[in-house]
Design a protein around this nucleic acid. Structure first.
Lengths: 258, 258
DNA sequence: ACAAAAGTGTTCGATCTACACCCATGT
DNA sequence: ACATGGGTGTAGATCGAACACTTTTGT
């Protein structure tokens, strides 16, 4: 969606290529150095911040749609997006507030109240985790802005996106114990302390450091290297890497535990 | 949906009252005396068996829509329906097979290919558990038949409903450990053996009988009565009831465990 | 007394938790 | 040598599976 012609075509004829009444919203969590953030965007047409999302092409699967939307809105690619819930309560999208003049001002396209975009939608929520230092968001033409926000310092979000973030976070924390996590969130070679901090931050609570290595290694996803990292006047920690094969297998089948 | 006029109005003007492109499908599990079944219906327009479902009114929540649909199609009321997943892969609804003549024959209404019902839909899956001996399904005008099927002897279902049942079953089994279950599935007063059989059947596996009482009571949902039931030439088992307050609280907050 | 089903212990091992302790490193 | 963070060991509690055992009941 880069030219005015494309936008106009999307608004006027999008219902032919996209499934109307259904949208996707993505809660993208960003981790880096013990900080947990969420990616928010500001639509040109909408006042406040909201989750990146969009419509589903008639030819693509839900996950593909989620990935494409995130890519288009933020430039971030190849996320492992997980569906967590559908939201459809009436009034969630605040359709009644449609303002024809404002739409024209912002998009340059005259739309009427029966345009496919001006109607109730049911939204399917996805979540993902990425490294926010390696994922610099690039807003598209429809978005004014796009930025990472601290998870416990979020602005009031539009629509029901507050609830979506809350539910996404809850689901993510439950799934943490059942899916492998960490790939792309840590340096290729990392220390126990680093992955420990990752888990603590994602879960939002302390995890006993001395028991952590045993549990972690029991997952069978890590390989201990014969290398250490020098960190100044302290004992040099061992380096670890993910065992790619075991990791990919666990992604498909879930971690066998609990 | 009881008269021909109502059906005609639904087909021709339903998009004004319902959200198009989105449907709901419900996997309703039925338990009774160690048997686990699923409720299937046969639409007049559709060849094979499928899950009961339908559309969402523009004024109702997703759960309300699920409940109403189940009520309308099967006469079963007041289920505790849980959302488990949205299904939207292209081709899942086999829309290409639209046959105008057949529609006319079955419904008595002439529809064209651009009717709101003849288009791709994304379906939100719900599941519930009920007692099939107390839930005698009554098919509505749109359904030819409606019956309980043994869980491990299902016919081939239409669309992607096979996958839905599989996913619903999996979710139900995972949730069993996190939500209270049993109310309405057992007599008001029941024995340990009865609730033990319920859990075994729902989970599809054996649970050690001697450890079961401890775990079960640890949930804090049951009260042991000072009553026994006479069962012939055997020791009389104690009777239990659900602690309604604790049960309702657990429904809202989830069972604290694991 | 007996058969059958209800219900309770008891043992063993795995796992979790907390905390004490030792190790490695540069100054 | 010492401060600091990395990493290991261990005792005690808790949990879980397996299975033997006791209790209750009607005939």
């Amino acid at each position: 969606m880069d030219t005015q012609a494309e936008i106009e075509d999307f608004i006027l004829n999008g219902h032919l290529r996209y499934v109307p009444h259904v949208s996707i919203d993505c809660a993208i969590f960003g981790y880096h150095e013990q900080q947990l953030k969420v990616l928010l965007i500001k639509h040109k047409y909408i006042e406040g911040w909201c989750l990146p999302g969009g419509y589903i092409k008639r030819t693509e699967t839900l996950v593909q749609a989620a990935n494409r939307n995130v890519m288009e809105r933020t430039g971030i690619n190849n996320l492992f997006l997980q569906q967590f819930k559908a939201f459809g309560d009436p009034g969630r999208a605040r359709i009644n507030e449609f303002d024809e003049e404002k739409w024209f001002r912002v998009t340059g396209v005259r739309v009427t109240k029966n345009n496919w975009l001006i109607d109730q939608t049911i939204s399917i929520g996805f979540y993902a985790i990425t490294d926010f230092s390696r994922s610099v968001p690039k807003p598209d033409m429809m978005s004014e802005d796009c930025a990472w926000f601290d998870i416990d310092n979020l602005p009031k979000l539009e629509f029901d996106h507050d609830e979506m973030v809350k539910e996404a976070l809850h689901t993510m924390r439950v799934q943490l114990y059942h899916y492998p996590i960490g790939y792309n969130l840590l340096p290729e070679k990392f220390t126990l302390t680093e992955i420990h901090a990752l888990y603590e931050t994602l879960l939002g609570k302390k995890l006993d450091i001395s028991n952590f290595p045993k549990k972690l290694m029991a997952l069978g996803l890590l390989k201990k290297l014969n290398e250490k990292r020098s960190i100044g006047p302290h004992r040099s920690p061992h380096l670890y890497v993910f065992d790619k094969d075991a990791y990919d297998k666990a992604l498909k089948e879930g971690v066998v535990l609990s």
